[in-house]
Computed example of a mutant assay.
Amino acid sequence: MESIVSQIRTMAKNADDVGLLEIQKALRDIQTEIQTPKDILIEFANSNLILATVRLGADLKLFRHLATHNGSLTVSQLADITGASSQLLERVLRYLASINVIKEVGFNEYQANTTTHTLADPKGEAMVYHIFDTHAPSVQAMPDFFAENGYRDIDSITNTPFQKAHNTTLSSFDWMVQNPKHFESLQKVMVAFESAEWTAGFDLFDSEAKKVPSVSPQPSERPFFVDVGGGHGHQCVQLGKKYPNLLGRLVLQDLPAAVNQLPPIEGVKAEAHDFFEKQPIAGAKFYYLRRVLHDWPDRECSTILQNISDAMSSDSRILIDEVVLPDTGAHWQGTMADITMMINLGGKERTVHQWKSLADSACLRVEEIHTYISSSYTSIVVLAPK
């Protein structure tokens, strides 16, 4: 057994992202094959408990304490630090160690592992709170919602399991604005996914970015890059680091709740804008939407794209930074995201065919698809005027 495990570790160490997912899938397939029916049922029973206990650990700051301590901590030490009873912590920590969230090193003695450090990070902690507080209630409400609605696909932002779970008539985003604690967790989660990876190997963007002179823009010069629905501007910041010559030509747009209290971002103009209204910036070279359209049903997406399309010049392009699902054999992370978008927002992850259909509805065409993370199908869908 040890030699087999050693071989798998060696393969994983030398694998790229796609290879790692293939190894993980093979291990899951083998696990399913060797599980008894009883094992399968108990694993399902455990699924809800994992999230709730991790949330409890986050409340007690267990992961932070273990991650910042050199070496191990005993149950008694953690009880003194957290104020929780030793009896409760003994049971909770034993369970967390059994599911590899923390590492057991002796009797009632624990230390951090890789998962612990991930959960101790503010972004990981925000993910735990967002999933437990906002998403998990929608999951619980999902079966009854579909039974009550005739098992039909969702095409509304205000008639989803989210409304049933949170007892509201508001859309998910409007509810978030009225619940700042949950909105802040979401923003931290979005920052966790900031990246300039999408520019790597993307010749269309790279070549145009390098043409921009390294001098201050003229007052009459059109913006180069408009980040539509860009949250706290993390993508503009990443882009400015990679292409300093673009500073002063980058625009961040989002709702007032997201941008009005932002500190100034060097080289980035932040402005409040609702993408369901007319796009105020005409003729920008690139309009960029990252993880925006998967939040919305087709009808709303068509409106968003049409508002941008009306402002485009002939050489303008829309860059949609999202998942492009394969027609068959999709990985569970992609399909999970699709269901998550549906039950909370009425949105979806889309296939090539669905992206082309959506573009066509706004008098646009798919000019190119640049896939930059093959393992998750994350791509730039380039839309051009027809």
Rank of each mutant, 00 (worst) to 15 (best):
Q261P: 01
P280I: 10
V268D: 01
N245V: 04
D310N: 14
S316V: 06
R291G: 14
L250D: 04
L252D: 02
L250C: 03
R317W: 09
H234K: 09
D295Q: 14
G240S: 06
A282C: 04
D295N: 15
G267Q: 00
L289Y: 02
G248Q: 02
S313F: 05
A258V: 12
K242F: 01
V237E: 05
N245G: 00
R290H: 11
I281W: 09
M312W: 02
G240H: 04
N260K: 12
H294F: 10
Y287Q: 08
P280Y: 08
L293Y: 13
G240D: 01
C301Q: 09
H273C: 07
D295L: 07
L262I: 06
L255T: 06
H294D: 08
A272Q: 00
R249C: 04
D274G: 08
P297F: 03
V259M: 14
E266L: 12
G248A: 03
D315Q: 13
H234I: 02
N307L: 02
F286N: 06
C236L: 15
D310Y: 04
V237Q: 06
K278G: 08
P263E: 13
S316K: 03
C236G: 10
A272R: 00
D254M: 05
D310R: 11
G233S: 08
D274M: 10
I308M: 13
T303D: 11
N307T: 01
V292F: 02
P244W: 03
L289W: 02
G283I: 09
S314A: 14
H234F: 05
C236F: 03
E277R: 15
T303V: 15
T303Y: 05
R290N: 09
N260W: 03
L255D: 01
